[in-house]
Design a protein around this nucleic acid. Structure first.
Length: 266
DNA sequence: TTAGGGTTACGT
DNA sequence: ACGTAACCCTAA
């Protein structure tokens, strides 16, 4: 959102994609962090992320566009203590395809388990539960362990934070398997994109409007479909996200202009 | 890569 | 319970 200034504690952590960062909190709470977040790494690299998911108790932010692009890290999660007004936040980098890198994920989870995350979350600790343990861990050396198809599953991160035994005690739900709900801001962007490129050019839309977003082109397509279902003169009983009327109008106009599904030629 | 049906998580 | 929205699967 409003360019939060974030400094990193140590270069090592920056390397592994795991670090602490003091973040200025508005009184509104963590919701303010929804949307685009820009900051600068200690190295000077500018970053831009999009925060797409926040949950209560522990806040999880799934972000994208982890730089450097070559590192293979594409997204990360951010865990912050509940109810802290100047939250110290721990960014935990993770792969876009955590499914392929369970070893890594589980390794970190193990570290977190050993550290007293509960205590950290309650505000008791003032340094990373991971300490510098991470510097011993060579991420790049790891070959991903899992192969083969696998049924969908909840991210181990989610399970740990919300459903795992360590923290499960007072967390009553598990997050959605992926990115959670679209924000009004994202929807606006999508609508803007559709109005520019028309319906059906999802990968281009992704490229131009959602380059750094967690949303995939398929997500964009699905979201558009949902928007139509929700607003196309159609009476849904309710919507989970209220959009500004002008935006809804725009959606309706676009829906009329570009029939969807688009005619498949054959 | 897209369209569209199917599945799952979560809100009401 | 049931509806909505996010995600998955896959033919073409």
């Amino acid at each position: 959102m409003e360019q939060a200034e974030i400094k990193f504690c140590s270069p090592e952590m920056e390397q592994t994609g795991l670090f602490w960062a003091p973040v200025q909190q508005e009184e509104q709470g963590l919701d303010d962090l929804f949307g685009d977040l820009q900051f600068t790494l200690a190295s000077g690299t500018a970053c831009e992320l999009q925060v797409t998911r926040i949950a209560t108790a522990v806040s999880i932010f799934r972000c994208s566009a982890w730089p450097p692009a070559e590192s293979g890290w594409k997204s990360f999660q951010l865990v912050s203590p509940a109810n802290s007004s100047t939250a110290e936040m721990c960014f935990i980098a993770m792969m876009e395809n955590y499914r392929e890198r369970d070893d890594d994920a589980l390794f970190v989870l193990q570290l977190l388990e050993e550290a007293d995350l509960d205590e950290w979350l309650s505000g008791g600790l003032h340094q990373s539960p991971l300490g510098d343990t991470m510097s011993n861990h060579k991420m790049e050396g790891k070959k991903s362990g899992r192969r083969g198809t696998r049924k969908r599953r909840i991210s181990p991160w989610d399970t740990f934070v919300f459903g795992g035994t360590t923290l499960g005690r007072n967390r009553e739900y598990i997050t959605r398997k992926n990115n959670s709900r679209w924000t009004a801001k994202e929807v606006k962007l999508l609508v803007q994109g559709v109005s520019k490129f028309g319906v059906g050019r999802w990968s281009m839309l992704k490229e131009k409007y959602f380059k750094t977003s967690v949303r995939t082109s398929v997500n964009l397509k699905d979201k558009w479909r949902n928007l139509l279902r929700a607003y196309k003169e159609n009476v849904q009983k309710y919507t989970l996200l209220d959009l500004e009327p002008p935006l809804v109008e725009q959606i309706r106009r676009l829906a009329a202009k570009h029939p969807y599904p688009k005619q498949r030629h054959s």
